[in-house]
Design a protein around this nucleic acid. Structure first.
Length: 424
RNA sequence: GGAGAGUUGGCUGAGUGGUCGAUAGCAGCGGUUUACUAAACCGCAGUCCGAGCAAUCGGACCGGGGGUUCGAAUCCCUCACUCUCCGCCA
């Protein structure tokens, strides 16, 4: 029943020490020994069940005699007993298996979130010859955002975008779409909700205690935190034809996050909010192509950021901060004045993230491809942010501000905004 | 929201309690025939799990889950989805 889930149980069985070490590097606490114990017991029950069924099948082919029926009834009792034991262990077995994180790329830095490695910087941030403001102040002054009324209508960390900020948002989406589709990605707009199976398959836990997910009462649905969920689910239980290359999508959706326990962390303005709009890239490919595809996603993210012009850097996320599904993850961090502390004018803040999830999601979602010899194999999945409307505007406003509080619009966006050059 | 009909292997489509893992057609693979292509004819063909060096053997799977029965694709319950009609709304 769970044979094709999470990491392959066979692999875990044969590489127990490696799995334990990987969990440790990823700062994930899982009782791997208990899992192995359950696995051994479950396979014994399974073998017994199959033997009893074989015995039953031999007798039940045609009309059995009364004494044969008596014998079958006895076998049925033994069978039922083994089936119940097996079933009773399902929940615990599945729960542990679900928690085992993906393997980790050998080049990912080992350690907690501060152990990231800087891979690239487009340039050093400029020094402002004046005291720079943060985006919330800049936007409020220009009548582009309203947090107070957002809170009145929907609660804290919801907001209204207004006037030219709305136009900027639409321009950013269009710009992102144009850049990404130029690289051969198919454009889709997804549902903003998804079923529990799909969420779990992609690696999210909708009902857990630390969940970031809003679930909808009396349904099996949750609001998605990213289009990664819906696009990942798009090909669930399918056998893909990848003979003409990877399947590449760029997906637009709204995203909802509870941000439970996130208060106190950097949460000024619209950096960390409950709802935002995001354009997300997603790839289904053959295992041998996934590392190459990961570099492609990063390259496109850099291309988008280069066009917009703000200072940024790329970091290689350390093992302890990868989450469950990612095998390797790169974040692009833009320079933001809102992050200033210790007298500096700013600091880097995450704006995009791209992950290679290898076969972790494909295994859970049962997404395979047909190989040339006719057999099937799990695909690899990757995702990467193209444009996020909560954080890209922050980077633009904070880096392009002038002393008088006006904002220079990046040239690549002006064509989408009727040629407008500044927010005044 | 109301009423009805469906969901079977890559596709189409039979099968209403006992050699049905499942008739047939198409597509696929191998062969015969042919100068070649096509046609015709013959044969092979599903997925997954477990055991074995292997030939092979055992088990599961007819939308998902549960039930009835010695025995379920077939009967019952439940959920999801699809289609038709009615109502409502954009």
């Amino acid at each position: 029943m769970f044979n094709k889930r999470m990491l392959d149980i066979k692999f875990i069985r044969e590489n127990t020490e490696l799995i334990k070490q990987n969990c440790q590097h990823r700062h994930v606490t899982v009782d791997v020994d208990r899992l192995i114990e359950l696995d051994v017991a479950r396979r014994k029950w399974q073998t017994n069940i199959e033997e009893f069924r074989a015995e039953k099948n031999r007798t039940s082919k045609s009309k059995p005699s009364p004494e044969e029926i008596q014998r079958i009834k006895l076998v049925n009792e033994k069978l039922k007993n083994q089936e119940e034991r097996l079933k009773a262990s399902d929940a615990e077995y599945k729960s542990i298996l679900m928690q085992i994180p993906n393997l980790t790329h050998p080049d990912s830095p080992v350690g907690g979130e501060d152990n990231y490695r800087v891979l690239f910087k487009n340039r050093e941030p400029e020094h402002f010859p004046f005291q720079p403001k943060d985006h919330e102040e800049l936007m409020t002054n220009l009548n582009l955002i309203d947090f107070e009324r957002g809170a009145k209508v929907a609660g804290s960390k919801y907001f209204f975008s207004k006037n030219d900020l709305v136009r900027l948002n639409l321009a950013l989406v269009q710009y992102g779409i144009d850049v990404v589709t130029k690289h051969g990605y198919e454009l889709i707009e997804t549902p903003d909700v998804a079923k529990t199976d799909i969420l779990e398959g992609v690696g999210f836990n909708p009902r857990g205690e630390e969940t970031q997910v809003y679930s909808i009462q009396n349904t099996d649905l949750s609001l998605i935190g990213t289009a990664e969920i819906t696009v990942g689910g798009y090909h669930a239980n399918e056998i893909l034809d990848l003979s003409t290359g990877p399947k590449k999508y760029v997906a637009l959706s709204h995203c909802f996050r509870t941000e439970a326990g996130a208060y106190g962390r950097t949460s000024k303005g619209m950096y960390r909010v409950h709802q935002f709009t995001k354009l997300e890239m997603f790839i289904f490919c053959k295992p041998e192509d996934s590392e190459k595809m990961h570099e492609e996603l990063l390259k496109i993210e850099k291309e988008i950021c280069d066009g917009l012009g703000f200072p940024y850097r790329v970091i290689d996320i350390p093992s302890g901060d990868l989450g469950g599904p990612a095998y390797r993850k790169y974040d692009v961090e833009a320079w933001m004045t809102m992050k200033s502390e210790d007298g500096a004018q700013g600091a880097y803040g995450e704006i995009t993230s791209t992950s290679n999830c290898t076969d972790y999601q494909a295994r859970r979602l049962n997404i395979r491809y047909r190989k040339e010899d006719g057999s099937t194999e799990f695909v690899h999945t990757l995702n990467g942010t193209a444009v996020v409307l909560s954080r890209f505007p922050i980077a633009i406003f904070e880096n392009n501000q002038c002393e008088d509080g006006t904002i220079v619009i990046p040239e690549v966006l002006r064509g989408y905004m009727g040629g407008k050059e500044n927010f005044l």
